[in-house]
């Protein structure tokens, strides 16, 4: 699928927006203005933007945990100001301040952020089942990392989705690292997408630093699923510029990742690559690009203000106990 100018601008805009969101989260974590932890997405923003920018409101989405789902949810068109409020323990949070990093936007078909890596795979089958049973054309965009494919659940899910020809995209954002462990060491094959072959599922590998390439592939997979042609597997080769989560050492195995590795990675920073592309193709001028950055920063300022101006949520134990079950 080739992209038109309007689509390219939308992708570029979301890439810029989400990379600023990621930087904001990083900054707030360092400032002590975020509860819990943060797993920065820098270097790996393009896959989520490419996967989610053209999803419909009715499509199910499981966001990758890196970036705490913000990259994917913002790209899908979700207002994440209530998630930042949640992540700061405020009563305006999307989960009433109870969840820290577990977001929930059921109206936008984002049902969970599991603290258990790989717990996206099992309900993915159920979302696909519901879509098929009800004869709706909704698709399931199931995003997770290379590490998550170590879980047996990934295999159960691929087995069942392919068996029943469910409208699911297994969208693997392979940054080569799971905490300190390299994909190279933990997986027997170079490509995670090789696994799809065992289930007879079509698979494609794409440069995960190129948001436009990712989007073309994602749109084809979405289109295929929407037409009832079953699941497919997309593997994005991407990168993790930072440590696993802020404050942990940046190791590979038990040794520091080298400066050379970092320098090499940063040569392929996705916003820079996309900027070069839109300028070269005359899709956007530098002035327009500057405007997109400014608008993104302004948007984020508003999101932060909303969170910061909200009250901390501290209900009584009795109130909480009354909320364990629904009547």
């Amino acid at each position: 699928m080739s992209l038109n100018k309007k689509q390219m601008i939308k992708l570029f805009t979301n890439l810029v927006r989400t990379s600023h969101y990621d930087k904001m989260m990083y900054r707030r974590m360092m400032q002590g203005k975020l509860i819990g932890f943060y797993h920065p997405a820098e270097g790996a923003v393009a896959p989520g933007v490419g996967a989610c920018t053209f999803l419909k409101k009715d499509d199910n989405l499981n966001p990758h945990h890196r970036g705490h789902g913000i990259i994917h949810m913002v790209s899908k068109g979700i207002d994440v100001s209530t998630f930042l409020a949640e992540h700061t323990g405020k009563e305006t949070g999307c989960c009433k301040g109870r969840s820290a990093f577990h977001f929930h936007y059921p109206d936008d078909k984002v049902y969970q952020q599991s603290g258990f890596i790989g717990h996206n795979f099992a309900p993915t089958v159920g979302w696909g089942y519901a879509a098929k049973r009800r004869g709706k054309s909704q698709v399931v965009m199931n995003c997770s990392g290379d590490g998550s494919y170590g879980e047996g659940r990934a295999h159960e899910s691929m087995l069942m989705c392919q068996n029943w020809q469910l409208p699911v995209i297994f969208f693997c954002e392979n940054n080569g690292m799971a905490i300190f462990s390299s994909s190279e060491e933990m997986h027997p094959t170079e490509d995670i997408s090789s696994l799809a072959q065992g289930y007879g599922m079509p698979a494609v590998i794409v440069d995960g630093q190129d948001v436009f390439a990712v989007a073309e592939v994602a749109m084809a997979a979405i289109d295929r699923a929407r037409k009832g042609k079953g699941p497919s597997f997309v593997e994005c080769k991407t990168m993790r510029f930072n440590e696993h989560d802020i404050g942990t050492p940046d190791l590979k195995g038990w040794e520091d990742r080298s400066e050379e590795e970092h320098a090499d990675m940063r040569k392929r920073e996705p916003v820079r690559l996309a900027t070069e592309r839109v300028l070269a193709d005359a899709i956007l001028t530098q002035t327009k690009i500057d405007g997109i950055h400014e608008a993104s920063l302004k948007e984020i300022e508003g999101v932060e203000e909303f969170a910061d101006n909200s009250e901390i949520c501290l209900p009584s134990e009795e109130e909480l106990l009354a909320d364990v079950f629904v009547d």
Partner: peptide
């Protein structure tokens, strides 16, 4: 009926319930 894959099997229920079934 599902394959012998309990997580996937339970996932059918979990995901479908999130979808309102």
């Amino acid at each position: 009926d599902t394959p012998i894959a309990e997580s996937g099997m339970y996932g059918v229920a979990l995901g479908a319930a999130q979808e309102g079934m």
